[in-house]
Design a binder for these strands. Structure first.
Length: 352
DNA sequence: AACTCGTGGTC
DNA sequence: TGACCAAGAGT
């Protein structure tokens, strides 16, 4: 590996960051709680997507204490549309732990902070460095991309072992007295200059330190294994209304995909006919004569694709199960729905 | 180690 | 338009 002039690299990077850093909502002050929330929201999620959610979340839960005291339903509602909902549930759990066992103070040591639910190696380092200026590595996809190019490292960055290798490199490279700015600068560089495609090397503050740039291989780094194509799943969903116009909805199980979110009942089905849907309706105690086709919804997740045929029915509905409710359209707005089922809700709104 | 877990933007 | 990608963590 090429020898890096550490001092000059730090200077070039930090001077650039001092000039060019973006004005982001979680950079206004150094509240560990706000840093924490922002880091959880930013996992696998772009800054532009996070910003409005962050403002809303801080409006609803301005302090760690307020979040700890909130109902889970309310926390999920604030996360609605952001995806990876276990992040919200884990954050809620962890914040309650901090309130109870750490006197409401976000821990500032690697050992303690990593024990918190939803706080993995990246987020631990991010909170420690950004909130407390502790010189811990915060290695995300940006940092691995930047470093793989600086040092022309061809290891597959999707492997855990490779992330650890990058963490060791950061430990040796980080500006000891400016850990917060160093880590944020590395990520900012990756997000705005050293991008996955067409990196702006001519604008890069550390281009002179970059081996990939020197060899012209910046476009083929980093190496990353391809993801498998999402698996298709065919569903039939039922929008059932009783005679007073209320809708039958249900809460998903506590674990797994979209845990604890609400939805219209559905079955997995590969058949063309609606016979299985009708027997499903009977099981739900939906006594309807007519089932009308409403729309097809395709929704792509990370690892699967829902191909959902949506049907509407109106009839007598008896004995909703414990996880089910009959609610008016207005009441539905209070619940948290995944985007796939929001597409159905939107259609209902459109039709009236 | 490989799989699960969401969504929206980009090319 | 479909494949790729994003400030990853849990199992």
């Amino acid at each position: 590996m090429k020898i890096l002039d550490k001092q000059r690299f730090q200077n070039d990077l930090l001077n650039w960051y001092d000039q060019e850093k973006r004005d982001l909502p979680w950079r206004k002050e150094r509240d560990p709680y706000r840093i924490w929330v922002s880091e959880i929201m930013l996992q696998q999620t772009k800054v532009d997507t996070v910003i409005p959610y962050f403002y809303n979340f801080m409006d609803k839960f301005p302090t760690l204490e307020k979040l700890a005291e909130a109902e889970e339903e309310e926390v999920l509602k604030a996360w609605e549309g952001l995806g990876y909902y276990s992040r919200a549930r884990n954050l809620h759990t962890a914040v309650k732990e901090v309130k109870e066992f750490y006197n409401g103070q976000v821990p500032d040591t690697e050992d303690e902070i990593k024990k918190l639910r939803g706080v993995g190696p990246y987020t631990a380092g991010a909170i420690l460095s950004i909130a407390y200026n502790v010189p811990a590595p915060a290695v995300d996809g940006n940092v691995m991309r930047v470093l793989s190019r600086i040092f022309t490292i061809y290891d597959d960055i999707s492997k855990v072992s490779v992330r650890k290798k990058f963490e060791e490199i950061v430990r040796e490279t980080i500006a000891a007295d400016r850990a917060s700015d160093f880590n944020q600068a590395m990520m900012e560089l990756g997000a705005t200059v050293c991008t996955p495609r067409s990196p702006a090397c001519l604008l890069c503050p550390v281009q002179q330190h970059c081996e990939a740039r020197e060899e012209g291989v910046q476009e083929i780094l980093p190496v990353k294994a391809k993801k498998k194509a999402p698996r298709p799943v065919s569903l039939k969903a039922l929008v059932a209304q009783d005679y007073s116009g209320r809708y039958l909805v249900e809460k998903r199980p506590d674990t797994g995909l979209l845990a604890k979110l609400w939805q219209f009942p559905y079955i997995e089905s590969l058949t063309e006919s609606d016979e299985d849907l009708k027997s499903f309706a009977e099981e739900l105690s939906v006594n309807a004569e007519k089932f009308s086709y409403q729309q097809h919804v395709r929704h792509v997740f990370s690892h699967l694709v829902w191909e959902m045929d949506v049907y509407q029915a109106r009839g007598k509905i008896t004995n909703p199960a414990p996880n089910q409710k009959l609610l008016t359209k207005e009441e539905l707005k209070e619940l948290t729905f995944p985007v796939s089922h929001q597409k159905i809700l939107y259609k209902l709104e459109e039709e009236l």
